[in-house]
Design a protein around this nucleic acid. Structure first.
Lengths: 346, 346
DNA sequence: ACGGTCTATTAACACGAGTTAGAAACACGT
DNA sequence: ACGTGTTTCTAACTCGTGTTAATAGACCGT
């Protein structure tokens, strides 16, 4: 009966059992040329017998590489995993990991701080997601010498980054509504978080807002003329926000939501209120997540290439890890997907 | 201008700059009681000045813990991430990580081998997913002394494991069809992989097949009487399989699929063929993934508690890591969700 | 038998931390 | 002045690996 809590067997144990030095064991595994084939075979046999496998952490320390990429996330794991956006992003990132033979370490905030999570992660580099307000994360990664890529942020100069042209996307979708004759347009935005007070809008949200403003300006409208509701990004919140908007004295004829999830909730609300889409109201989403094509009516939305974003972020990170010193900054395009949830005003 | 490739600063550098020993630096950070407060402040100041943060890998090696859980996966990352099943599973596992303050390391097969991936992962324990044919993974983890939990497998004795009562689920859904009067039932199964030849059905697939067989037996039918198609688990494959089944001389009146994805494809096929669901054919899924409630008609399916499975697996792993020597084996229940895609034979 | 070349093997170090035992410095009471 | 006790710091070890420089030994030709 081999004890269940047998202490882990190290290369020292193998060396002792085979009657050689520790170095010989290492050579047997890593550098067959430096050792006689007969003793190599003997060492390997003993190693197998004892069930020896090198300790990954020790090897990481010695080699200075971990063979895994880190993703520094802005929310806790359950929230991230519930969000289909990240599923797609991880598909793209996963393609790179697969190609390079790397693992993926998901690093949520530690005690509500992305910064605090950094020093505990054993990775070769970080993809930093949704860092809208930099609380020292960039400086920390920089001086620590860890390669990293910023995604969905306000990228400072000299840092590799990947973003999407949120502004153009928002502009186009609002322009689409204007072209259909809508003027009373309401906006349902996802919550900018507590940082809005101190910093105003940041990152993708700021760009989307700017895009909306830009399109409105072309029609002689201002943001302040429109009702705006900010809620957490769940279906229920979209539902309630939309319902409340329809109770206004002059209810909107079009609803611009900044996320498909909110739009789906809004569609539910209209359904319950007996309001026809797009006959009485037009609704738009953002992201083009799978739900957008499932709901009825199918959702007009702004598609952003999430999988490509993940893949490009991974590629940039790989090249940063390889020591290439360029700092590429790529902005991916959005596409307006017109489906059935928008129509002309009547 | 601080150089960009400044070599990482270690505790030795801090010690030298502060004129103390390395140990003092360590104490300043970890054990304030063992050092004079004045020098502690000085060390911390110097450390901050130099931008020192302890190396996570070195600490892991010394402390013998990594503060991260591993998930040993049966497929490559892109495939995993495309699969909504795993998104839900990771939500449950993420809850545990969040509670315990741990990170999550996704470990796909290395060169097509789960076994080979094990020695490269720096984790405190593994959740092993979908290990249907054990090629030494269990032995490897055991002798390495790494705690682990098996999920969706054929768990051997003395190993913590979490499973779902697939057999009961399959039995009930087939019974439901039998109760509706169906006798010509076809099965679309996901591909059992190349191991079927050598080992036959294994794991959840084996249990689901057994459940089907069991229900059929009650009605005096045998598995061999039914058409069975095995395909990879994608929507397109479900589509083509369903279409082919309808071309048979005596087409089935009910379609049992072993995954919602396949069922959704089958629904598409019936739509294209102009066959009414559930008027002319009944279709059932398995898992109750979000799509099941989105498609029209809404899918009758077997719900398995995926999030709970992830959470229980995480809990078992945590207690195994804590050294508790029980080997719990939990089987979660399924629920038959009857929606609109099944109806009485006519 | 001897110097030389070549090969198999090992001792010693590096990676970067945490930790134990003990030395040095100082205060105190007698 | 001496022993005792306390505080403050450090030398030296640990974790488990990979790698370099040096040693021991075998083999060869003359």
């Amino acid at each position: 009966m081999s004890g269940p809590t047998e202490s882990r067997v190290t290369s020292k144990d193998v060396a002792a059992a085979a009657g050689v030095s520790r170095s010989a064991v290492s050579f047997a595994f890593n550098d067959p040329a430096k050792i006689a084939d007969s003793t190599r075979q003997r060492i390997l046999a003993v190693a197998k017998e004892l069930g020896y496998t090198p300790n990954p952490v020790a090897r990481m320390l010695q080699q200075g590489r971990t063979r895994s990429l880190g993703v520094l996330l802005p929310q806790d794991l359950p929230q991230i995993m519930e969000n289909p956006y990240y599923s797609q992003f991880f598909v793209g990132l996963g393609q790179v990991c697969h190609r390079e033979g790397l693992t993926l370490l998901l690093t949520p905030p530690l005690r509500n701080s992305m910064l605090k999570a950094i020093p505990y992660a054993a990775v070769d580099g970080f993809v930093v997601c949704g860092l809208e307000v930099d609380r020292g994360e960039v400086a920390e990664l920089r001086r620590r010498g860890i390669p990293f890529v910023l995604v969905d942020s306000d990228p400072p100069e000299g840092v590799p980054s990947v973003d999407v042209d949120d502004q153009a996307g928002a502009r186009e979708v609002v322009q689409h509504l204007l072209d259909l004759g809508h003027r009373r347009i309401a906006v349902i935005s996802f919550d900018p978080g507590p940082d809005k007070e101190a910093y105003g809008y940041r990152g993708p949200l700021a760009r989307r807002m700017a895009g909306i403003r830009e399109a409105l300006a072309g029609a002689g409208l201002a943001m302040d003329d429109l009702p705006l509701i900010e809620v957490p990004c769940t279906r229920e919140d979209g539902y309630h926000a939309a319902k409340n908007l329809m109770l206004l004295d002059e209810p909107p004829t079009a609803l611009v939501t900044l996320s498909d999830i909110l739009a789906v909730g809004a569609i539910d609300a209209m359904h319950d209120l007996g309001i026809d889409i797009p006959g009485q109201i037009s609704i738009t989403g953002f992201d083009d997540q799978p739900e957008a094509a499932w709901v009825r009516p199918r959702l007009t939305t702004v598609r952003q290439p999430i999988i490509a974003k993940g893949r490009v972020a991974g590629d940039f990170l790989i090249s940063a890890i390889r020591g290439e010193t360029q700092h590429p900054h790529q902005v991916l395009h959005t596409v307006l997907i017109i489906r059935e949830s928008t129509g002309p005003i009547r």
